[in-house]
Amino acid sequence: MKKLVVSTLSLTLFLAACNGENTVDESENDTTEDTVTEENKETTDSESRVLTDGAGQDVDIPENPEAIIASYLEDYLLALDVIPAAQWSISDGEGVQYYLQDDLGDVPTIPYDLPYEAVMEFEPDFIMIRDQPEQDMIDQYNLIAPTYVLNASPTDWRETMREVGTVLDLEDESETVIEDYDARAQETASLVEEQADGESAAAIWMIDTSLFVVHPERSSGAVLYGDAGFEIPAVVDQLSDDADWAAVSLEEVAEMEVDHLFLISDDEESSLTEDRLWQNIPAVQNEAVYTFDSQSAWLYYGPIANEQVLDFIDGSLQ
């Protein structure tokens, strides 16, 4: 907490300093270049900040970019009330991040691998990417618009949120998003404490007959355990390797003896649920299995996804 206060304080100071600089710049412009045309003035005003990105490049960040392409980072942008110029999609626009469609419904789709011409079509003035592609490709994207490769780890949404905020010059807003989220998470945490104190939970993703369990510190796992405060079953803790969702056997799921099971599955019926092992899971016996479809926020990262997961948890417990 102390750390947070200090960093927020230093951030505010830093911002204040930046603002000061800006005003100095403007007044200088006004006095020395009285004859500048409106257009020229605009370009001097939008004098860019320089940040070092995850590929080690110094990137000129344009001020107030209007058409941003930040594929698979839409969650973070929307949390800052920034609407991107295009949204991530697979299978020729068929597959999108459905849980964001309330806000992204009108935003055109772009293939996930960002073909150059598809990017050009949107005439972006700023591109943000996460997966670090080859330097050749970054150079090509840079010909279209300044391109920033994120430093933040994809598995740490808070770090990502702060970096996106810094890059878009919306540091305060991004801190607010995180604070708001933490406050919202506190509500769920008290609900869990009230209704299911000391009880364990797991999020299981079922595809046909394969089962996957969420990493305790990633995606919806971070929400379930870190924010909402469910106990982590021992099996989940042992399984957690480097995947967001680790494959588990039905035996291992049974071994977890979870009290609450958040099941992500698109199948109405599965042969697995008929199994004796499944039937003996405490959550199944206590009718504490909550099913969600695989398009819901459980499989994603970001403040909006996480908040939806909190809503799901609340809804399930009540």
Binding site: D92, I110, P111, D113, P115, E117, A118, E121
Partner: peptide
Amino acid sequence: ARTVLAPSE
């Protein structure tokens, strides 16, 4: 390759 499924490739 780049026109059949454009913009995907």
